[in-house]
Design a protein around this nucleic acid. Structure first.
Length: 570
RNA sequence: GGGCUUGUGGCUUAGCCAGGAUAUAGCGUCGGGCUUCUAACCCGAAUGCCGGGGGUUCGAAUCCCUCCAGGCCCGCCA
């Protein structure tokens, strides 16, 4: 496709020699109101260098570039050069490109096969997979897909929280009050009960805490009894997690969690020691970071056992050795900002220049209307329940509408789960939010079902048009029939998708894609409402169908980047 | 106390990084649109001192300073 911004920048650069090409391209903007053009160039900044009034400069530029075939019209309005791209040229360019590229539309190859590690989801074993986990899981999955679309080789890592004192607690609780049968029947629920009971009992019996630490130390030392229990808890928990991952259609390239690094930590610790980074402090060993504006990081407990930052150091080294990554992305809550700053700094102090490629992608907190989520206090909403309820509600809606009851299970799954995923990816990830059943189960307005519905509408039009007509559209069109205001607006939105994908990946912000999909869907629905597509005039119908095919492909590809499917009927 | 972060119509929210023309949308409210391709849709109306104050600039929601309010984090949890 033609890069209009670039082409315009070149045209203007020929007239304005005082500025660099890149700077000019940066100044070109897309007006909020399309009545002011498809692109605009403000001339205020040029006033100083050119020593002329901005409107005069704008007038000059407008006159000079107006003849270019790319434009339908170029106007000077005050200090602005407002440019209107030839509708026919743009629409044809977009439609031809999307129809040719199909499922690849939106992809680029700027990654050139480089390895990107994405550490995401990473739940704690033996704890419930609750609504808070949706953030890392769904955002991380989308970031994986975005980077793949940019031509990177992505390694999705589920860095399971399968190690640490918590397992000491779990094992202690199981030994005191546990029952094998309960664990087998309902692993997470039962293990959570043990964990909760442990904390209740520990309040009156502090010796339990010591027992738990001791038990974890045994586990880390490889004692068979502890190890067996740990393995069992881990296996049972993973079974439950995989149910949720299956529903969400999420897979990982690696499940190397914290325990995976237990035998890799001694080398990392030794290396830090050799590099004189470890300092004894209150019985423990720390890395001093106060001179860098950070707080000191303890990396070894007084009993010699490891802490999570120790494991993260070993993990980062392992990933570099194994994958030679260009980026090592951690999709982890903003609560851990300090932790990742410390991690980066320690890697830097160890002398590794790739510390700059360690990227923490933070996100805000999810709370409940009753307050902060707390597994210990049983104040928790399970992700699986949310997904199931969304699917159930979708089924009810489909039954009410009486459409497509044949594949109701399949459709309800795509739409219900899509609604939850889309909702999660709608806002800037850094913001905190309060989980609300009403909001996730609202399927009107800027929602997943809205976008999917638009997709189904596209599919429906194409079905009604028949295979012959669709084939004709794919063979070539007369673009003059799709230059109406709403058709052109839709084409422009589809045109922007590849740039939107790049921007979203660049900022690790899937919501940029989500928002754009809503825009495309709105654009399509306006077009659909304003114009009759299946008209008698064959050439007109063919051109309009081509635009429908393009919109449908853009929506499908965009949803795929968010980890969502698109139903042909709903 | 220190650090990070958020604050935009009744509610949710885009724009802030790379400053520009009447501040983006959705929900809700009010009004309108199905004998035409799926009404989970579309159109219209009302609603904003963009947290407060100062500064930089021809121009500030956007940059700088400061204050206020919320959230998170500050050595052996993750």
């Amino acid at each position: 496709m033609v890069n209009f911004k670039e082409a315009i920048a070149e045209l203007i650069a020929a007239e304005v020699t005082d500025l660099e090409l890149a700077e000019i391209q940066n100044m070109i903007e897309v007006p909020q109101d399309s009545k002011m053009g498809d692109y605009a160039f403000p001339c205020f900044k040029l006033a100083k260098v050119m020593r002329k009034a901005p409107p005069l400069i704008a007038k000059n530029i407008a006159e000079k570039i107006a003849e270019n075939q790319m434009f339908e019209k170029v106007e000077q309005v005050n200090a602005y050069v407002n440019m209107f791209i030839s509708k026919e040229a743009l629409v044809k360019d977009v439609v031809d490109t999307v129809l040719a590229e199909g499922a690849d539309y939106g992809k680029t190859n700027i990654g050139n096969g480089g390895n990107v590690v994405v550490d995401f989801s990473s739940p704690n074993i033996a704890k419930p997979f609750h609504i808070g986990h949706i953030r890392s899981t769904v955002i991380g999955n989308a970031i994986c897909k975005l980077y793949r679309a940019l031509g990177y080789n992505v390694i999705g890592v589920n860095h399971l929280g399968d190690y640490g004192t918590q397992f000491g607690k779990m094992i202690v609780a199981y030994r005191h009050w546990g029952n094998r049968e309960d664990v087998v029947n309902e692993p997470i629920k039962t293990l959570l009960e043990y964990y909760t009971k442990f904390h209740v009992e520990a309040e009156t019996n502090p010796a339990l805490e010591d027992e738990a630490r001791e038990t974890f130390a045994k586990l880390e030392a490889g004692e068979p009894e502890e190890k067996e229990l740990w393995q069992w808890f881990r296996d049972e928990s993973l079974k439950e997690f995989n149910r949720v991952y299956d529903m969400l259609g999420i897979t990982f390239e690696s499940y190397a969690g914290e325990s995976f690094y237990s035998d890799k930590m001694p080398a990392a610790i030794q290396e830090m020691r050799d590099k004189n980074l470890l300092v004894p402090s209150l019985g423990a060993e720390i890395v001093e970071l106060s001179q860098f504006g950070l707080t000191d990081a303890p990396v070894l407990k007084s009993d010699g056992s490891s802490i999570y930052i120790t494991r993260d150091i070993a993990a980062a080294k392992y990933r570099m050795d194994t994958y030679n990554f260009v980026k090592d992305i951690y999709v982890v809550a903003s609560q851990q900002n300090l932790h990742f700053q410390q991690l980066k700094k320690i890697i830097e102090l160890m002398g590794y220049e790739w510390c700059k490629d360690i990227i923490h992608v933070p996100f805000g907190l999810v709370s409940l209307e009753e307050g902060t989520m707390s597994t210990r206090h049983g104040r928790v909403v399970f992700l699986e329940d949310v997904l199931n309820r969304a699917v159930e509600q979708t089924k009810e809606i489909i039954r009410e509408k009486g459409v497509n009851t044949e594949n109701i299970d399949e459709t309800a799954k795509i739409v219900g789960i899509g609604a939850v995923v889309f909702n999660e990816l709608s806002n800037n990830r850094i913001k905190d939010y309060v989980f609300s059943w009403n909001k996730v189960l609202d399927f009107n307005g800027e929602t997943g079902p809205y976008v999917q519905y638009t997709y189904a509408r596209c599919a429906s039009v194409l079905r009604n048009a028949g295979e012959e007509a669709v084939k004709a559209a794919q063979a070539g069109i007369k673009a003059e029939y799709i230059t109406s205001e709403s058709a052109f607006a839709l084409a422009k939105l589809i045109y922007r998708l590849p740039q939107v994908v790049i921007e979203a990946a660049d900022k690790y912000e899937p919501s940029i894609v989500t928002r754009h999909l809503v825009d495309i869907a709105q654009g399509f629905n306006r077009f659909y409402h304003d114009e009759h597509i299946l008209v008698d005039n064959e050439e007109e119908k063919t051109a309009k169908l081509a635009l429908v095919i393009a919109a449908k492909a853009a929506i499908k590809n965009g949803l795929a980047l968010l980890g969502m499917e698109a139903p042909e009927r709903m």
